[in-house]
């Protein structure tokens, strides 16, 4: 296992939203702070720093992870994707558009983390039932919306992407 000197900064080279980036981090620096302060990507939010609220969720090698429970040095050599990368050619992607249509956000503070979790979730569960969507969402806290719009948006995108409407994934 690689050991890093706690008192020093170490280079971290990784792919961030499709581009290779390098920064420097002390071993204790959280990935959430590294992305926000050093990489300048403030779209990833911090709501608890103990892994419960989900606001800081990003994709690491395609898997949804809590940036607040990950050390910056851990992403050395990995692929990290944040909310800033979802729009394609400047156009909101289908999930983002569905969130807007369904009023799935109010203050928007929880939104980035939820979008990233959904991205991973829908890639692995192309035809989720509403109950599955709600189950996935239990990893996120939203204080504004009561979740209705979020669930509707995700269910709709799942339908559109899989080109079918099954009975289970009717709107709530």
């Amino acid at each position: 296992m690689k050991r890093l000197d706690a008192g020093r900064s170490h280079p971290v080279t990784f792919r961030l939203n499709g581009r290779e980036r390098t920064g420097h981090a002390e071993p204790r620096l959280l990935l959430s702070d590294f992305l926000r302060h050093d990489m300048g990507l403030t779209g990833t939010h911090v709501g608890c720093e103990h892994g419960v609220c989900g606001a800081c969720t990003v994709l690491i090698d395609g898997h949804a992870c809590r940036a607040c429970l990950t050390l910056a040095v851990q992403v050395d050599g990995r692929d990290v994707e944040t909310v800033e990368n979802l729009a394609e050619d400047g156009v909101l992607n289908d999930l983002q558009q569905a969130f807007r249509r369904h009023h799935a956000l109010q203050c928007g503070f929880c939104t980035a983390g939820i979008l990233m979790s959904c991205t991973d979730f829908l890639a692995r569960n192309p035809r989720p039932r509403e109950a599955d969507v709600r189950d996935m969402l239990t990893g996120h806290l939203c204080r504004c919306t009561g979740y209705t719009g979020i669930v509707r948006a995700i269910v709709e995108v799942a339908e559109q992407r899989s080109g079918s409407t099954t009975e289970e994934n009717e709107h709530v």
Binding site: R36, L41, T42, V46, A87, L92, Q96, G108, T111
Partner: peptide, 19 residues
């Protein structure tokens, strides 16, 4: 109607106090 606020927020371009 949809909200004017949402486009920036969905892109992660909101300007919250810590940003």
């Amino acid at each position: 109607q949809t909200r004017l606020e949402d486009d920036a927020l969905l892109r992660g371009l909101g300007q919250y106090a810590d940003d």
